[in-house]
Amino acid sequence: MKTVDLRSDTVTQPTPAMREAMMRAPLGDDVFGDDPTVNALQERIAAMLGKEAALFVPTGTQGNLIATMTHCQRGDEYIVGQFAHTYRWEGGGAAVLGSVQPQPLEHQGDGSLALKDIEAAIKPDDAHFARSRLLCLENTIGGKVLPMVYMAQAAELVRRRGLATHLDGARLFNASVKLGVPARDIAKHFDSVSVCFSKGLGAPVGSALVGPRDFIKQAHRARKMLGGGMRQAGVLAAAALHALEHHIDRLADDHALAQRLADGLQGITGVTVEPPQTNMVFVDVAGEKAQTLLPHLKSCGVLATGLYRLRFVTHLDVDAAGIDHAIRSFRDHFNA
């Protein structure tokens, strides 16, 4: 049986139709702003998210860093969750490269940040403190979907206090599908949004940063500074355009497969499965067999990660047969 790679939704291969779109893409030089496919992608994603403009960037990490550096200046501060990607998983870029201080907060059980904690973290206008300038949220966060009401409340709170808002929407379309609302209805609560094409949408490379036209003009300068200006980038933008046209609605299939996996792992002694909301299944394993589980799964052709918790991620290169094989392999380890 072929390898069932559940490490991340970033491991997908371009579909044949996506490869064909990449081959046929008209190209220019995006640094000069004349790659027609990049321009089409930027216009498309900006319109889909209800923003004035967009910037195609190589990675979500760069998109988030550009957003932070555009919203904030040296000595400013952004409020963020302890387990948010922009704080924990992006190498400290905002602090190291942007001289922007993070103010991390504890998450609630649903992945949100308590409104009272956000308000308490906003610093007074005093020379002793970094300037609170930005709230960064993430949706989905650890596979969880932030509720619409919560996002509206958080945005209203910080705007009243003079802060901007940025959404790390790497898996924004997973949230959109789960909530049953257009992605623009989520994006409207934020001044800027980053969205990733190379996760659930299945493109090989690329993200976009969207926001007001003047903001994106400033972000373009930051992208150049960070080495994100690409040339005939339309080859990659074509894959993202194809993904936007063909791979959004099918995210519901990934969510269903995650639920299938979670259901199949129920009832094993020493194994606790967190009910999935989207395409991520988190599993806690107690006892002696925890240390040998990942090697056993790998020997069966099933790949997962266990950086801080055991995580399985479904995507367009995984089907029901693969999920069932993963369940059998997992159970065999505990039945041996």
Rank of each mutant, 00 (worst) to 15 (best):
L55S: 08
H71C: 05
F56T: 02
N64S: 14
T86A: 13
E77N: 05
I66L: 08
A67Y: 01
Q62D: 01
A84N: 13
A54S: 14
V80M: 08
Q62I: 15
V80H: 08
N64L: 12
L55V: 07
F56C: 11
F56P: 02
W89A: 14
Q62A: 12
E90K: 02
G92P: 06
A67H: 03
L65G: 11
T86M: 01
I66F: 08
H71T: 02
T70C: 04
Q82D: 13
G81E: 02
L55F: 03
D76M: 12
Q82T: 10
W89L: 12
G75F: 04
A67T: 09
E90M: 14
C72K: 09
W89Y: 14
G91R: 04
N64R: 13
H71P: 07
Q73T: 10
W89I: 01
Y87E: 05
I79F: 06
V57H: 11
G81W: 03
G63F: 06
A84S: 14
G60Q: 12
G81Q: 04
G60I: 12
T70W: 02
T86P: 00
Q73W: 02
R88W: 04
A54E: 03
H85I: 06
L55T: 09
G60P: 01
A67N: 12
G75Y: 03
G75R: 03
T61Y: 09
A54P: 01
H71R: 06
T61R: 15
D76S: 12
R88M: 09
V57D: 05
P58N: 12
A67W: 01
C72T: 12
T59S: 15
T59K: 09
V80G: 11
G81R: 05
W89H: 11
F83Y: 13
G81Y: 03
I79M: 08
N64C: 13
I79W: 06
Q82I: 06
G92L: 02
M69L: 12
M69N: 09
A84H: 15
V57E: 04
P58A: 11
I79V: 15
Q62R: 14
Q82L: 12
T59D: 00
E77G: 06
G75T: 08
G75A: 06
F56G: 06
V80F: 06
Q82V: 08
L65H: 13
R74Q: 10
M69R: 13
C72R: 07
Q73C: 06
V57K: 12
T70D: 08
T61W: 06
M69H: 10
G60W: 01
F83C: 05
Q62P: 00
T70G: 05
G91T: 02
G81F: 04
T59N: 04
E77W: 01
T70E: 09
I66D: 08
Q73I: 00
I66W: 07
G63D: 03
R74D: 14
G75M: 05
G91Y: 03
G75C: 08
A54C: 07
G75Q: 05
